[in-house]
């Protein structure tokens, strides 16, 4: 039996799985974006300086 053979369940749940996949991808983008904003913000710079001092 081929590993690629998809079950009927896969077709039935394609929409749901696609939605969950896209939601998770969007969540990753949000976490990445927030990290960039926080790291480049002045708050993070100050706390880094405090740690260095």
């Amino acid at each position: 039996m081929s590993l690629r053979k998809s079950h009927e369940l896969h077709q039935r749940r394609f929409g749901r799985n696609l939605g969950v996949g896209l939601t998770l991808a969007a969540f990753i983008v949000i976490i990445f974006g927030l990290t960039i904003v926080k790291v480049s913000g002045s708050d993070f710079g100050m706390s880094t300086e405090e740690v260095q001092n």
Binding site: E8, R12, R13, G15, R16, L18, G19, V20
Partner: peptide, 14 residues
């Protein structure tokens, strides 16, 4: 089970 309604992404979003 196969006859039963399969909830889609939109149903959870609703």
């Amino acid at each position: 089970q196969s006859r039963a309604y399969e909830a889609g992404f939109g149903d959870y979003f609703a």
